[in-house]
Amino acid sequence: MAKILAVDDSASMRQMVSFTLKGAGHDVVEASDGTEALKYAQGQSVDLVLSDVNMPNMNGIELCRNLRQLPGYKFTPILMLTTESAGDKKMEGKSAGATGWIVKPFNPDQLLTTIKKVLG
């Protein structure tokens, strides 16, 4: 069981991600944008961060950059949920310190397979 921080401004995506992960026995904390996620992360560490890219207030790239500044998040896997299949967004994510990405649309099974890559 891992503790996962799921960040997305879309409630339906958040619910889907959260439901899937909880169903697989994980502990999920939800945040609706980067600011909220960062605030949570400043208090405690998690095993994995799943974040959308496009969000109000603080987007996923900025969140990633900010998280990497936190001592507890130096090596924490951060996966970006992105719809851009083009490479430049992924590159931007990588250079901000993201571990990898999951391309939307994805289904629950794909999500679970992907996070297995970075957990345990």
Binding site: S10, M13, T83, K104, P105
Partner: peptide, 12 residues
Amino acid sequence: RAAHSMKGGAGT
């Protein structure tokens, strides 16, 4: 962002 979220959700 609105268009983007909708696309992501609709696909999913």
